[in-house]
Amino acid sequence: MIKLSNISKAFGRNQVLNNINLTVTKGEVVVILGPSGSGKTTLLRCVNYLEKPGDGEIAIGDFSVNCKHARKKDIHQLRQKTAMVFQQYNLFRHKTALENVMEGLLVVKKIPKEDAKQRSIALLEKVGLGNKLDAYPSQLSGGQQQRVGIARALALEPEVILFDEPTSALDPELVGEVLAVIRKIAKEGITMIVVTHEMGFARDVANHVVFMDGGVIVEEGTPGEVFNHPREERTKQFLKRITPELNYSI
């Protein structure tokens, strides 16, 4: 279980996150929605400390970090319990697909090389890239790179995988292959927090939808609740703008 308590974050005078509380149970797929600038990516990046929260507490299982006095060791441990899939893929450019997946296993988990290799190959096959093991990121399409990114995250067997708009940088026809992979691993019961604009995906993969605006969680619930019966005005407006076919009475 992941529990974020009273997370706040400001960039200078700009308060980006304001007292966020969020609980994610094991195996849950949480989708965070919201207009740009609502703080959803910042919240996600706070979970693995790529962004340092100003205040609050992050707990994963029985491990917790108090953001007021987090030590280097705590941050390191937190990062070992999480993995991230980036909008811009961020594959290690000087390493092949296989080496990208192996890197964390070798350096962080200290798994013997042959073992790490076998596990990485299996994961790359799982995301449909068994034939691209020795390709460098520059030789792969965006969709392929993102699937390597997912394999790299899976390899670490984290408590939670954080997806930061995983399909936003992709050509429309490549979005499908990446979403299919995410769907597949979601079914395996891996805990995920996903920031996305793919409403269709959010609707049928999420168990838990969070709508953020202005640095606060405006509304959360099951996809059925949030998409079909939004309670808050701001949620209705957002959903109406982003999915015109839905017609809410505002």
Binding site: N48, L50, K72, Q88, N90, R93, E103, K109, L156
Partner: peptide, 26 residues
């Protein structure tokens, strides 16, 4: 790219590990 060191951190590397294995070679 900044994303390279972020990715290294995200897989659990320490900053010295990230610098040595990911940033310096590039």
């Amino acid at each position: 790219d900044r994303g390279q060191i972020e990715a290294a951190h995200s897989v659990g590397m320490t900053t010295p590990q990230a610098l040595r294995r990911i940033v310096f070679p590039q």
